[in-house]
Design a protein around this nucleic acid. Sequence first.
DNA 1: GCAAAAAATTTTATTGAATAAAAAATTTTA
DNA 2: TAAAATTTTTTATTCAATAAAATTTTTTGC
Lengths: 205, 205
Amino acid sequence: MVSSLRARQKEDRRIRIVASAKTLFEKKGYDKTTIENIAEAAGVSGVTVHNYYGTKAGVLLALVIESDQKLIARLQESLPTNADDLVALTLAFAHTILDHAITNLDKVIWRQVIAAVTTSTGTQLSKAYFKLDQQLAYVLVQRIEALQMAGKLPATIDPVHLGKALFHLQNARFIQFISSDDCSQAEIETRLRNDLTALFAVPAV
Amino acid sequence: MVSSLRARQKEDRRIRIVASAKTLFEKKGYDKTTIENIAEAAGVSGVTVHNYYGTKAGVLLALVIESDQKLIARLQESLPTNADDLVALTLAFAHTILDHAITNLDKVIWRQVIAAVTTSTGTQLSKAYFKLDQQLAYVLVQRIEALQMAGKLPATIDPVHLGKALFHLQNARFIQFISSDDCSQAEIETRLRNDLTALFAVPAV
DNA sequence: GCAAAAAATTTTATTGAATAAAAAATTTTA
DNA sequence: TAAAATTTTTTATTCAATAAAATTTTTTGC
């Protein structure tokens, strides 16, 4: 048997639960959507939703993981391999991420995502999320390597260290972006630019 | 009246609630401590705890804000004004913060703090928390200014931008530290050092 | 093809967070 | 000291989360 009836049914339910949740979160908002609402829309019992995803935030995380996989694909093809410099590259990277985030979910929901990821350390879903974060960072690392190959960065720099540092900085600004209702995308990109300008002006010891 | 009886009683209750919560969180852990437990220990009703702090996480936040005020004081006197270079300064800054964090609360509780801060955007408590974060960042800015005055940093650099960037990076690593049970303080400090070394090796455009 | 075994879902029940409204108690103030 | 104002407590409800028992459905062995 390639995949048992049971496995197919399970997969089916997973898909229905996540799809129903996405629709409801968008329509009613995260807080006003109950597990029971999701369960009803998906045609399962509330306890089944818990059995599958543990918590309401777990369902949200599953949904974000799906969307993040698309983001990585988008970054891998759209992020230029021949950027002029590191500032331009990092800003393009951040721009794509912010853009993707805000077109998919609103800030209130993203806050729940951050909260869910930090509190549910150790679970399958949070591990999957962190893995995607690593993949995201690695896209940047690859472009930095290309930049270095093109002679636009000193050969002494470790691209992995640099990529991770820039990713963390971008991520910190991302969290700041979603944490405040009145912080525009343009504003956060300006701040990131200021970060980079200041950091790169520091001479190596 | 300097302070009415009512105001004094209110302040008294606040103190009792936060103190009881701290004791209980340490003894039983955050999850196993109920609002009712805290209320009982503080000699008030459960609803009063809600009226005062909104949520259980709100009580935790109040407790962290207290502790963070001490941290700022500690940093202001102990963080050297005559550091050798920016790497040493930033690492000393991070070290003090990590040290303070881990001696006051365990990682599991810190995760709840991060979650609470991100989800409760707009509340009094989260505003107070962000304000302390700013003060923390400003301590670093001041030391960077001193470094610049001493001729150890180019005069063209904006100390505010640089300080904020470094604070965000430090904060990102702090969150990574508390997000994993098997990530030592030494390990995170090494990572931060790698971040800084890589970033400062990038030439200005 | 059928019956026993295995697996998964649903039902049922409980705890605790969060919130709202009414009731009760206490402090203020006139 | 009595009325007014404020605050806490009581009471009640919704929903997340979890556990255990009961039920249904799929597998598997014959």
